[in-house]
Structures are given as structure tokens and as C-alpha cells.
Write a protein that binds this DNA or RNA. Structure first.
Length: 212
DNA sequence: CTCCAGGAGC
DNA sequence: GCTCCTGGAG
């Protein structure tokens, strides 16, 4: 078994099923994916709460930029994020804001389209592919890099190389990759912080920083 | 009060 | 490698 599959198994065994992403609708999930860029989830929750009356593509499209900025202020970088949300909506409108209209699009094609949207980078594209468009992709984020590096894996700097490595090695379907990302977030928050809390960590045996 | 965690674009 | 920002921790 590959090392990345081992990490998944151990995290799953320790923390159990996570049931991500936390959102009532797919559209709310999409907006959350942009808001959470370089931000903690509690700040995103406050922003989503302010956006509650506008959580449909049509209403967000109609919402003036200034009002959108005020509403999402708590998520940080609110000026860029307001533009990014509008840019995403502009793209999504080509598909009549219909998830079903994207179902037949190849994953790689869809990824390229998402990456062409101003403000959607590799990580946000993967999060959207996984949780909104139900594609089996591994989300490369700061947490995954940290956890995998401490596990002793040599980490490709390039996102695509890292992602393909995990996707090839792990036998997971879409639901499995959703769990994997959620488990990585959970583990990073509970144990594998910048300053790690190694007591009770499910990965201590393999970790390079064991006992720190 | 200062500091820190957290993606993307230029 | 710098800029964009907040809320919570220290």
C-alpha cells in the first residue's frame, strides 16, 4: 500500500467520516470555496450569514459590488473576493447557472475553465471540482503539504505533480476524496498545526517530528 | 497591543 | 516576493 493511502486509512480510522462540505446548497458551497481562500472558516461563516438573503446566482448577480463587499468583509481580502465572486458568476452564467449543464464536461476541460476565471487558482478549482461538480480529485492545500511532508514524503512543489501522485496511488472515488480533504483539515486543526500537538496524533509512528 | 493563519495574481 | 484583509490568540 502507498504512503498516501496509509495516511488516508489512519486518519479515517481515527476521526471517522467527516461529511463535508458544510453548506446547505451547492451554490452556497461554491461561494464558500472562494470566501475561504486564505481565511479560517469562522470568518467565512459570518460572511455567509450576511449573504443569506442573496444565496442564489441571480440575487448575487444583482447585488451591487459595494454591498457585496460589505457583506463578505469578515472573510478578509473582501475587495478581491467580491470581484472573484462576480467573475465566477459571470462564468457560471454561460451554463445558465445550471449544474446539470456541466455534467457532461470532461474534468480536465472543466478544470481549465475554472482556472481561467480571475481569482480561481489550483486549490479553489480542485475544491469546486470535488464538492460542487462531483469529480474525484485530490485537493492540494497548505494542510496536505504540511501533513505529508511531516509524514516523510518528498513533496513535489508543483500542484499538478503532487495531485496526480496522490490520485494515482490512492484508490478513492469522489466521496473518498471528499473525506480525504476533510480529514486533512480536521487533522491539521487538531494536531498538525504549524506548531504541532503530537500527543494523541494518529500519525506519530511515521512522523518525522515524532515526539516534538 | 502585536502577531499570526490562510490563496491568488502581478 | 510582494500585496491584499480579518478575527482570534497571545
Amino acid at each position: 500500500m502507498g504512503a498516501t493511502q496509509q495516511i488516508y486509512n489512519k486518519l479515517y480510522h481515527c476521526y471517522g467520516s467527516q461529511g463535508w462540505w458544510p453548506a446547505d446548497t451547492v451554490f452556497e458551497m461554491m461561494i464558500g470555496a472562494i470566501l475561504v481562500q486564505r481565511t479560517n472558516w469562522s470568518n467565512v461563516e459570518k460572511a455567509l450569514c450576511q449573504l443569506t438573503p442573496y444565496l442564489s446566482p441571480e440575487q448575487l448577480e444583482a447585488l451591487p459590488m459595494e454591498e457585496l463587499e460589505v457583506a463578505i468583509r469578515s472573510s478578509g481580502f473582501y475587495r478581491q473576493k467580491a470581484k472573484r465572486i462576480k467573475a465566477f458568476l459571470h462564468w457560471y452564467k454561460k451554463y445558465d447557472y445550471q449544474l446539470a449543464h456541466l455534467r457532461h464536461v470532461e474534468t480536465e476541460t472543466l478544470r481549465a475553465e475554472l482556472l481561467s476565471i480571475h481569482g480561481i487558482g489550483a486549490e479553489t478549482a480542485n475544491v469546486l471540482l470535488l464538492y460542487a461538480f462531483q469529480r474525484p480529485v485530490f485537493v492540494v492545500d497548505a494542510y496536505a503539504r504540511r501533513i505529508f511532508a511531516r509524514f516523510g514524503l518528498d513533496m513535489p512543489e508543483k500542484e499538478q505533480v503532487f495531485r496526480l501522485q496522490v490520485e494515482t496511488e490512492c484508490v478513492l472515488d469522489t466521496e473518498g476524496f471528499k473525506e480525504f480533504h476533510a480529514l486533512i483539515v480536521q487533522h491539521a486543526k487538531e494536531h498538525c498545526k504549524m506548531k504541532p500537538i503530537c500527543s494523541g496524533c494518529p500519525l506519530v509512528d511515521e512522523c518525522e517530528r515524532r515526539g516534538v
